[in-house]
């Protein structure tokens, strides 16, 4: 009897390790603005393929420097093109694996209702003490915000009022706690079901800044991992695309 149980257990154990061998895990560095859609995409990915994706969120600039210093990431979802391009050139990413997965939208947002008007006039008329942006050196959405301010010719007025978050999520935190009255963040952070879900915002027109082409790249560490490759192709699936556009991103042509 005991022998029999043991045999069943061994056979069962084999089946278990076998199925684990097929389901791989991949470690993904995700730009902070893409955290909400990517969490949903990763859940769908796990359901569809059986593989799983572990996600780390942070500023794109930080991830580039971490990857250059041997961080164990297998995929990098950047908020811009230049980071992945750089990694490809320095031989840390698989050549030719780079593609745009979303076009970022910038929003001027306040946690207070009716604070930001539909044309962003509050920028020139409003009397606020702090306006939050992400560090333009580290975060593409921060760089875009600086560009918008420059194009609106408001640099002189706004520069002394700027406070910088280390990444776009921290920037939102400055605004949502009310410590900064308003600020520039990614639309995806406050966008749900086709509208801004809380506070008030102005979706910045595309012509006020260079397009935020969010690019993905397969890193060398993930080159042999089927889960990493599967996740990158899943990003191009209709399921993923539907999630991405639901958070207010434009899809690349």
């Amino acid at each position: 009897m005991f022998k029999h149980t043991l045999r069943v257990a061994v056979v069962f154990g084999f089946m278990l390790t076998n199925s684990i061998a097929f389901a791989e895990t991949t470690l993904v560095a995700v730009a902070a603005n893409f955290s909400k859609p990517m969490t949903e995409i990763a859940a769908e990915f796990a359901k569809t393929t059986g593989h799983s994706a572990k996600l780390s969120f942070g500023s794109s600039g930080k991830f580039v420097s971490q990857i250059e210093n041997a961080a164990p990431f297998e995929i990098f979802l950047s908020a811009d093109e230049s980071g992945p391009e750089k990694l490809e050139q320095s031989g840390l990413a698989v050549a030719g694996s780079r593609f745009n997965y979303a076009l970022g939208k910038l929003v001027l947002w306040s946690a207070t209702d009716n604070y930001v008007d539909g044309q962003g006039k509050v920028l020139s008329n409003g009397s606020f003490k702090h306006i939050a942006i992400a560090d333009p050196k580290l975060a593409p959405y921060g760089a875009a915000a600086v560009e918008v301010i420059k194009n609106l010719k408001l640099s002189d007025k706004l520069k002394p009022l700027l406070v910088q978050g280390e990444n776009i999520a921290q920037t939102q935190q400055f605004i949502s706690t009310g410590n900064a009255e308003l600020g520039f963040i990614a639309l995806s952070q406050v966008y749900e079901n086709g509208k801004i879900s809380s506070g008030s915002g102005w979706i910045v027109p595309d012509q006020l800044h260079a397009p935020i082409r969010q690019s993905a790249v397969l890193l060398n560490l993930g080159a042999e991992n089927p889960a990493a490759q599967a996740l990158l192709s899943f990003l191009n699936s209709t399921t993923a695309k539907a999630i991405i556009s639901r958070y207010g991103y434009d899809l690349p042509q």
Binding site: S59, G61, K62, K137, L138, L162, V163, Q164, G165, E166
Partner: peptide, 26 residues
């Protein structure tokens, strides 16, 4: 400092934050 400072020159940008930003910006 990183959490309550906001990285403002001459106000809240202290050495440790500056080093962090240099490293992050490569």
């Amino acid at each position: 400092v990183l959490m309550v400072g906001g990285n403002i020159p001459d106000q809240t940008r202290v050495v440790s934050v500056q080093i962090y930003n240099h490293v992050e910006a490569l």
